[in-house]
């Protein structure tokens, strides 16, 4: 047997998830539909009379709430695939370091979520006439960073909840309090980017950096604690 590098093992696991998703597209469709519904629910709740928009703060909030809620759908579905016919046991029994399993699941889930979010953003632009195009790339970066922060915690929690009966109900309840700082910094930065009247973009830059720092902290804690968490009794 040859030695396989940590990175290529993680990449194999991520590729496996993406390949499965490419075949079924189940997560993209269900998560995308869920995200669109959250956005629409907010539209009905917030917009009244002749208004067509709700202001950058609210649009940013709506976007990130949609990401959070639909993200739990993505997480629980990608981990359902591990639980069906106990594939997770084969994965845990393989000589792959558990941190590589974590990294692989993180990359795959974040990639799937990111794809949906990229499709979601134009919907927001259309529904609320939000100015997403002037800083489209920056906004994309924010979505990516926010998604990584969310998934870095979510992957651990979903893996640990695989054997819990009420895992779907618990996932959000346990995950949201921890990822509030991610939500806060991501939606703040987004609000500044979406605001055409913003005098300068320094706050957005600050929050983007803060979000990146958050990601680093969460991913490090995640890589480090995944092994003992999935170790089993």
């Amino acid at each position: 047997m040859k030695r396989v590098s940590w990175v290529s093992q993680a990449a194999r696991i991520a590729w496996k998830d993406l390949h499965i998703e490419g075949r079924s597209r189940e997560v993209v469709y269900t998560m995308g539909f869920m995200a669109a519904l959250v956005v629409l629910v907010f539209s009905f709740a917030f917009i009244s009379g002749q208004e067509t928009t709700v202001g950058p703060d609210a649009v940013a909030g709506i976007m990130w709430v949609a990401v959070l809620f639909s993200g739990t759908v993505a997480l629980s579905r990608t981990f359902d695939r591990e639980r069906e016919s106990e594939a997770i046991r084969s994965l845990l029994l393989s000589p792959v370091p558990r941190s590589a399993i974590y990294a692989g699941k993180l990359v795959a889930t974040a990639a799937i979520m990111f794809l949906v979010e990229v499709l979601l953003a134009p919907l927001l632009a259309a529904l609320f006439s939000a100015a997403i195009w002037p800083h489209a790339l920056w906004l994309g970066l924010l979505l990516l960073l926010g998604t990584i922060g969310f998934c870095s915690v979510g992957v651990i929690f979903s893996a640990a909840l695989l054997r819990a009966r009420s895992r779907d109900a618990l996932l959000g309840a346990l995950l949201f309090p921890i990822v509030i700082p991610v939500l806060l910094s991501a939606s703040r930065a987004t609000a500044y980017l979406l605001d055409p009247a913003a005098p300068d973009l320094d706050p957005a830059l600050f929050w983007t950096r803060f979000l990146a720092a958050l990601d680093v902290v969460f991913v490090v804690v995640g890589l480090w604690s995944f092994e003992p968490v999935v170790m089993g009794e």
Binding site: K16, H19, I20, R23, S24, R81, E84, S85, E86, A87, R89, S90
Partner: peptide, 10 residues
């Protein structure tokens, strides 16, 4: 195991 431990989608 009694579950096959493989990915059904592959």
């Amino acid at each position: 195991g009694h579950e096959p431990g493989v990915y059904g989608d592959l």
